[in-house]
Design a protein around this nucleic acid. Structure first.
Lengths: 339, 339
DNA sequence: CAAAAAAAAACAAACGATTGCATAAAAATA
DNA sequence: TATTTTTATGCAATCGTTTGTTTTTTTTTG
């Protein structure tokens, strides 16, 4: 059990000073080629690892990006994280992943820890519970770049990377109409979350544009979990005049619908068409496979990281907060195309 | 944009010294009750956040546990992480999550970063590619507690938290036998990973114990992805004498098998029974639902963290490396019970 | 070849929290 | 009241890097 080798160990061994070692390792112009080579070689030989705590303390922050998401086991979020990791790696930064399980308290806690550990920036998708954004004030006050993605804060003076959920929903519903479905129901999420509000609006817009009557009884709000999808589907097919398609704001509730329809022996897509949202992995794996809306998680992550790097590279701090909106893509599968 | 408040700011304001502030905040016995109250109150008022970099540098490490997993979007791993997070939080530690995407290079990189950032311990499940464990030597040399879980290193002198994969596989196969299946195939993973080797052995043991002949042509090794499951299943049913059941070492390849069988119009479970492994979320959601083996990810995470805390609390460093083995549980669903 | 200019390396002071040791203040004892 | 003991606080060094400034060495130039 040996102590870790430091910059001073290397300095001693080469009869020079820590400052020279430090600069040599950073390829500083004031260091001669020959010295650089000696230093780099020795560092490799001794397996030198920079002490990030010391470096971070000195320069006031660490080369780290904090990412806060509701849960890491959703395909969308894990794709976002992968995107952030890519960009971070390219720029020599590390990523700290935090999950809140949709709890505000956890969100607060992670935020404090990230501040405390001197992250250079914070990317966050807020939890279902979060409807107050005071805890983000401290981050902004300290001048730490803050970027929201997907589920964003209702504040104007922050950077946001969003999906055009309205457009995604619109595409999905138009696709159903194009495939001959006439009465299209909607599984909606809580209205106070931007993503669900927008998806519902996209649905309504599509119906209006195609002169289809909007029927309130075909719009069911829930928590969009599998079980809710099942319950909602049951409710729908027991109507005197049931719908012939469902556009669900979540793949999970769409799955619930599929399971219920299967149990009832109702044929999907021929009797009822179903479209989900988020393009979770399982949508391609089930039978019938589920048409869904791909939100390009990876891209969102890359954009969020990109905005972060732009922020820190801007010396004048003159950047005004931006909102970037990405267009989602409809992935057509078996559940919505009549045979 | 204000500077963050430090311990010296607080000291100045209370006409005392940083050392007193530091001790007061840590509830050190040498500080008077009155002083503690003043300090704690002011710290709260000024929203003081400890500078983890400075503290970490001073004491030589940070109150952080690093967790390295192949991927965070697997239910098993995200459960493990949740378990670790629980225990860490209870003990005032933070968790840094790293994913390798099964690449050794990433494993190395994360390991270096964790060392560099002074984590107090490292919990790791190695990637599919990893068959050499040299990169962990440095961790041990530095005396950083290292705990392997699930996919563990073939070294004897490290802590390990494992599933009894052999027992899990045995249970699964016996369950198939009990349900009247006679010729049971196996989708195996690479032999150099302990988990897959053990699952195969459990399979073989069960066949032996029940006097069922082992047929090499019924054992197919692959990367256990969905597509491989499909291909392997095709291969099996094209045999002159195809099997009537499959025990897959992964839920994903089991799913591939189910999809192929569905396409072929072969009835599961009546014609062919299928059992998977890991109890991924989707196993309960597909039709027919997939019998699988639950590995208690949460518990594994908690145990791994527990072993870590025991390590750091042991002053004499007298602890000998331990191996903890948990018994997995068979979750019986539709895919393996004839109607 | 001496003086000036350029290049390379050394010096030293941070960054903020922690902690062993010294000291001051308060309390207890003689 | 003087002295010892206890309790509370202050002092100062330290962790390993970074970086502005100074010094030394080398190179260039008249």
């Amino acid at each position: 059990m040996k102590k870790r080798v430091t910059i001073q160990d290397l300095a001693k061994e080469l009869n020079t000073t820590p400052s020279t070692i430090s600069r040599a390792l950073k390829n500083h112009p004031a260091i001669s080629k020959s010295m650089k080579k000696k230093v780099v070689d020795l560092a490799k030989e001794r397996n030198y690892q920079i002490n990030a705590l010391a470096a971070g303390l000195r320069i006031g922050k660490s080369k780290t990006i904090g990412v806060i998401v509701p849960r890491i086991n959703r395909d969308f979020f894990s794709n976002v994280i992968a995107g952030v990791e890519d960009m971070a790696f390219e720029n020599g930064y590390n990523v700290v992943i935090c999950q809140t399980h949709d709890k505000v308290a956890k969100e607060r806690q992670h935020l404090n820890t990230l501040i405390s550990s001197g992250v250079s920036g914070i990317l966050v998708s807020v939890g279902l519970e979060t409807n107050n954004f005071d805890h983000f004030d401290e981050v902004k006050r300290l001048g730490i770049p803050l970027i929201f993605f997907d589920r964003v804060a209702e504040q104007s003076d922050v950077n946001k990377i969003q999906n055009n959920d309205k457009a995604g929903a619109y595409k999905a519903v138009v696709h159903l109409i194009d495939n001959g479905y006439k009465r299209i129901a909607h599984f909606a999420g809580p209205d106070y979350l931007n993503v669900y509000k927008d998806r519902k609006e996209g649905y309504l817009d599509a119906l209006r544009d195609y002169n289809i009557e909007i029927e309130e009884e075909l719009i069911i709000e829930s928590d969009l979990k599998v079980e809710s999808g099942r319950v909602s589907m049951k409710q729908l097919i027991e109507l005197p005049n049931p719908p012939d398609a469902v556009f669900s704001a979540s793949d999970y509730s769409a799955l619930g619908a599929l399971l219920y329809l299967d149990e009832m022996g109702i044929d999907v897509p021929n009797q009822i068409g179903v479209v989900g949202y988020s393009n979770e992995n399982f949508t391609a794996l089930i039978s019938p496979s589920l048409t869904s809306v791909n939100q390009h998680g990876m891209e969102i992550g890359r954009y969020a990281a990109k905005v972060f790097f732009e922020e820190i590279n801007d010396q004048q701090k003159s950047l005004i907060p931006r909102t970037i909106v990405l267009d989602p893509e409809l992935i057509i599968r078996a559940s919505s195309v009549r045979k």
